[in-house]
Design a protein around this nucleic acid. Structure first.
Lengths: 131, 131
DNA sequence: TTGTGTGCAAAGCATTTGCACGGCT
DNA sequence: AGCCGTGCAAATGCTTTGCACACAA
């Protein structure tokens, strides 16, 4: 997929202008007045991920997307919010070096990394696990 | 979920004795002569993941499971095989410290980490991306 | 023009759920 | 006995696909 289409541009725009991390459903919702079919949203988002233009965030509550590739994410198991996690580049380098020396894998194209836990505001509530 | 049932034991046994990283479908397949319903497999596996007894591996080709929690995984985008990746504990500690200092999150219960790339044997073939 | 992208609707899968029954404790 | 876990089948939900048309190159 290489062509610049209106749909592709609109989808990127929604992702760029979002402060949250949208799911496919939310993307469709945000684009509903633009008359873009959900099949197009799926196809476009998939190709953007393959091109390393956007990040796919695999969370327990489903898949979310982020238009930036320079950071990772934290998912709160209590409130289900996603927070950005910026890691030092040097640490990522060490990580890749470690993978290489321990497993002899040196051609890594993508890192799927999500931390799951309890965020600061939820820790105060002490409600995790309470039904 | 706490009870020791035959089904729960059988499912753990299959995972323990597998060298690959089974999907739900493969688990059901391996258990088909044991007369265990797929709903039970789903329910049991989900609770085992929540209890941190097994690891959920989110790959582009679907979800796989590993009965060990002491390592991470690499997914080959070409041959779709999954390889174990052992990371130094000290590095994981640094990772968590980095998350804490950069994002103020210190209650992390689970790390979802999958490296995606081209494995050694596929690199030789040079067939990645060729249709 | 030519082939790729799009929309729509339907198909395809993976996962969850309702319900009655069975088996741990 | 009481309740949780199980099996079955159906329901749900997410994602992909077939096809005809539209549009970027």
């Amino acid at each position: 997929m290489e062509r610049k289409t209106i749909q592709r541009q609109e989808i990127m725009d929604v992702l760029k202008n979002s402060y949250d991390h949208k799911t496919i459903k939310e993307l469709c919702e945000a684009l509903k007045d633009k008359n873009i079919g959900q099949a197009t949203v799926y196809r476009t988002v998939n190709s953007l991920v393959l091109e390393n233009k956007i990040r796919r965030i695999e969370c327990p509550d489903g898949v979310h997307y982020d238009y930036r590739m320079d950071h990772y994410h934290f998912y709160c198991l209590d409130c289900h919010n996603i927070k950005d996690v910026f890691l030092d580049d040097s640490l990522i380098d060490k990580l890749l070096l470690n993978v290489h020396s321990n497993s002899n894998l040196d051609d890594i194209k993508y890192i799927n990394l999500v931390f799951e836990g309890i965020c600061d505001s939820c820790k105060g509530k002490g409600s995790y696990g309470v039904k």
